[in-house]
Design a protein around this nucleic acid. Sequence first.
DNA 1: GAGTGGTCTAGACCACGCC
DNA 2: GCGTGGTCTAGACCACTCG
Lengths: 229, 229
Amino acid sequence: MTVTYREIKADILSKISDGRLKPGALLPSEIELAESYVCARATVNRAMRELTEEGIVERKRKAGTRVRMSPLREARFEIPVVRKEIEALGAAYAYRLIAREETTAPGWLGARFEVAETAPVLHLTCLHFAGAEPYQLEDRWINLEALPEAAAVDFEGRGPNEWLLETVPYTDAEISFSATHAEADMARHLGCQPGDALFQAERATWWQGQAITHVRLVFRRGHRMTTRY
Amino acid sequence: MTVTYREIKADILSKISDGRLKPGALLPSEIELAESYVCARATVNRAMRELTEEGIVERKRKAGTRVRMSPLREARFEIPVVRKEIEALGAAYAYRLIAREETTAPGWLGARFEVAETAPVLHLTCLHFAGAEPYQLEDRWINLEALPEAAAVDFEGRGPNEWLLETVPYTDAEISFSATHAEADMARHLGCQPGDALFQAERATWWQGQAITHVRLVFRRGHRMTTRY
DNA sequence: GAGTGGTCTAGACCACGCC
DNA sequence: GCGTGGTCTAGACCACTCG
């Protein structure tokens, strides 16, 4: 029965949990820990490295390893495909294409995207349903210079997000969350009142510096994005 | 000049980026990779383990290592202290306590928190400024059963978030983001119109199952939470 | 059964950062 | 300088899972 790096992690965590190790406390060096756990230093190292990545401890050469003053943790959100998000709610997923237009990039998009305003883009508006209820309104722009084949796809049966996921990888993405008012047509599609406060996400993706797609996702009234950490 | 795990990661990533490795492709086994990179298998293993954690590849015993079909990535958000958030904007931070009251937990809080409705709580309302502009309205509830010493603190000079961070660790936290309407007093404090759509975060933390604090943070109009990934 | 990844060991060298 | 963590090596055993 040897000591695993998981057991070492669990032991350190339990010592923090029950107060035997307080925030700011200095831990023994890897060599000392390896002796006390009777294992190789590499095993201790892996345990401590993972605790570092998880934001539990802080390490500095020469200074040693300390329990973080306030465990710096970051919340992580998976960015699921809307179909899976809805199916995870236990509802049936349905999709409808509302509008489709080939045009040129409007000014705000050009600025965010670093594409010329004359660039050809495909503009799609779609609605995603959870059962019979509208769930999310999708306002999508696809850069046809980067992705000319998108012009040949009719997005009637399947949403552009799923098509894009299968078709193009990306190297960079930016996502932001904010609140917005329901405009008149938005309220009509989402079944809420004009002026209602709605949660929205905007995402842009690039492939090696070239803009691929920008999407604005407006959720139905009352939507919450939640995570535990 | 030895081969590091970082170089191996970078090499694999570049092969994915330029198409030499396509989504779904099977990579050579660790032993083969170690031979071709002329390094120890542990070095290859670390590179591949990190690529797995980052969602770039998928590994199964016996089946081998594959490039993920669609790189499953998660967005990460640091949850900074509001003071640092504001200072990072280049603005001066200021704080004001608006209201303070010792009371018992309202029903909705008891439900979220699993504390009795008779539990004593400290209810604080505070405003955080970026320069002269209101930035965030904080509506905080502290469980006085878990943290009786909070009753003795006047939160005049410093916000409860900073006090809590220094004072109590937590084992579990839940955070959620949504949109809300500005109520009348909220609009007055944040300098916006009643009914404006505002972005809000709600966070609850626990220490080993015991509720510590619940906070609702309502941001000024137009606030966006952004990350790249 | 056999091949793959998962982990541990014992040892080594190095880079960083205090003193 | 010197102690700490960061990394690499060569070898080993094990656990899972596919055929």
